[in-house]
């Protein structure tokens, strides 16, 4: 059998170009495996070869998606691959979005299989799990050794057209596809079994999970802006210089609230970012680039808005769990309600 050609997609970090300061690099390609590609190559069958690696900066990809994607697909195509593997991207949001977008485009435009590996809370997971195979991984690169074999195993099956097992068997996120199978017990008997298990408090597995609609009803718009008190919240990690509450640069376990009474401009001397998930140079130079206090103060003075709430809330949205984010927002929301705020602006990096 002829050799099966594999192309691997990586971000700037795993592609060994650099950290956040290199997150804005445009797509580039390198022959053969790079970084985690070496372990991936070992986990694949002997007749499969990583012929090339395409690398793109996470910020570049997300800020220039169309351009980046076209270039990446062109580079992938130049290797004439039979399958594309992206990541794994773990809980890195921008990387996960890139892996998902690339895999989906590979399937649609090149008509070959593609897969990635992501953590369940990665935004790329929800966005792409119905379109592509996404192997479930842990939330950080520490889980690389577990992620690679699972991804390789599925890649072998997809590349060779072998039957793919259920999401549980293979370890991928359910794609929402139902397969008809013959079962030894009829449906009514299985339903009664489940009910009995439920009544006994025993575990059981539904055959038809109900979708979860996690949406919030949009509140009506502000009627009179000139009387409204506006609050600022950010996940971009803006804090007073020195980060007095020591908010973590990733996987934040807390948020901060800071009084900005009499503050009309966030300067290099007074504010900075605690965020470790983007290049901090620009936010450290001028934190208004993330938290627009200067402009809102102007508008307050001009009477366009009633007032800017004198406390701003901040956390670091970098691999921070959904549970923590929700908890922070719940507490912040209660305080803002108490303070009689009329509208909220949340900024994210």
């Amino acid at each position: 059998m002829a050799e099966i050609r594999v192309v691997h997609y990586l971000n700037q970090f795993f592609g060994q170009i650099g950290g956040e300061e290199k997150a804005d690099i445009a797509p580039l390609k390198q022959d053969g495996p790079v970084g985690p590609g070496t372990a991936l190559q070992q986990a694949l069958d002997e007749d499969m070869k990583i012929v090339g690696t395409v690398i793109c900066g996470d910020s570049y990809f997300n800020e220039n998606t169309e351009t980046a994607l076209n270039k990446i697909i062109e580079m992938i195509k130049s290797y004439n691959p039979d399958i594309v593997i992206a990541g794994p991207g773990f809980n890195a949001g921008r990387y996960g979005m890139a892996c998902g977008t690339v895999c989906k485009a590979v399937q649609e435009r090149l008509n070959i299989p593609a897969l990635t590996g992501l953590y369940e809370e990665n935004p790329g997971t929800d966005m792409f799990k119905k379109d592509i195979y996404i192997i479930k991984t842990g939330n950080s690169a520490a889980q690389m050794r577990k992620a690679v074999p699972a991804m390789a195993k599925l890649a072998v099956k997809l590349a060779k057209g072998l039957p793919v097992g259920s999401p549980d068997e293979e370890g991928y996120f359910a794609k929402g596809i139902r397969k008809n199978v013959f079962h030894e017990k009829r449906g009514s008997a299985r339903a009664v079994d489940m009910l009995v298990a439920k009544l006994k408090g025993e575990p059981f597995k539904t055959e038809y999970p109900m979708p979860i609609f996690d949406r919030v009803t949009p509140r009506p718009g502000v009627k009179d802006l000139s009387k409204a008190k506006i609050a600022l919240v950010t996940s971009g990690g803006i804090v007073p210089k020195g980060n007095p509450d020591r908010i973590e640069s990733s996987s934040a376990s807390k948020y901060g609230k800071y009084d900005i009474t009499g503050v009309y401009d966030l300067t290099e001397e007074t504010y900075e970012t605690a965020h470790g998930g983007y290049d901090p140079v620009y936010a450290n130079q001028d934190a208004d680039r993330v938290l627009p206090v200067d402009v809102l103060r102007e508008m307050e003075k001009e009477g366009i808005i009633g007032s800017l709430h004198n406390v701003f809330y901040t956390t670091v949205g970098n691999g921070t769990s959904v549970a923590n984010s929700k908890k922070f927002a719940h507490e912040i929301g209660l305080e803002l309600k108490e303070a009689g705020v009329d509208a909220i602006i949340l900024t994210s990096t």
Binding site: E63, P123, R215, V216, S325, L346, S348
Partner: peptide, 25 residues
Amino acid sequence: MIKELEDVADVPAVHICTVVPISKT
């Protein structure tokens, strides 16, 4: 965060962000 803020504070909330698809998801 954005959903919880809007829900708990019970006022309109707007999300200013670069990666719009994430905010949508």
